[in-house]
Structure formats: C-alpha cells, structure tokens
C-alpha cells in the first residue's frame, strides 16, 4: 500500500546553500529473520533502495539491508545551485515504488 511519505525541507534557499532533507516512510521492513506463530519464516519484505534527484541529477541514494528499522528514516543534505524539483523514490522488494516530489525556489 503506497502511503504518503513524510518530507521536511525548506521551500526556498539562497544559491549555493546546503539544505537538510528529512524523510520518513511507512514500511514494516520485514527482515526475513522472524518466524510467525506457526514457526514458519516470514519472508523478507523491505525497502531496498532510496534515491533522491534534483532536476534529473542524482543528489543522494542508498541501498538498504534488513538491518534498517521499520518506518525508515533517512536524512541527508543537498546543495542548491538553482530552483527546481526534488524527486524521491523508495523501492520495495516486491518491485513497487513509493514516490514523492518537492519544489524549491531560490531566494531573491
């Protein structure tokens, strides 16, 4: 079930400014290590990749393993050289992708 990720970043920045981006997405991050009540292993289901690009250029990405806590929180930075659009994508083991976008303007 795709849900709205939570994002926090400024709406505008001065040229050359480095901003902080906080992201939080709802996901169980089932590690594949656990067993259900009947003792059967619960299959792994995690967000295995996160990417952030700005105006089509890669800013930050990461490959995630089952050792990432449920509801993954990822915080990183970005240098703003121009106004534009951030695109965020979280890829699930099942192939589905949660996406979000956020615009940022340059301060006059």
């Amino acid at each position: 079930m795709a849900e709205k990720p939570r994002l926090k970043l400024p709406k505008e920045a001065t040229k050359g400014e480095i901003i902080q981006i906080k992201t939080l997405v709802s996901h169980v991050m089932e590690s594949g290590q656990r067993k259900d009540a009947q003792g059967k292993p619960i299959p792994r289901k995690i967000i295995n990749k996160f990417t952030c690009e700005f105006n089509g250029k890669p800013v930050f990405s990461c490959v995630l393993e089952p050792a990432i806590s449920a509801n993954p929180y990822i915080q990183f930075d970005a240098r703003i050289d121009e106004a534009g659009t951030f695109k965020f994508a979280w890829t699930d083991d099942d192939g589905s992708v949660i996406t979000a976008e956020e615009k940022i303007a340059l301060k006059a």
């Binding site: 250029k57 930050f60 050792a67 990432i68 993954p72 929180y73």
Partner: peptide, 14 residues
C-alpha cells in the same frame, strides 16, 4: 554526489 553538498546522513538501524 557533489550535489549532496555535505557527506552527512542519519538513519536508524537494528
């Protein structure tokens, strides 16, 4: 990437 501005990140782990 150079666009990251800083090589800084926070995550939560098990």
């Amino acid at each position: 990437t150079p666009l990251s501005g800083k090589a800084e990140a926070s995550i939560r782990i098990r």
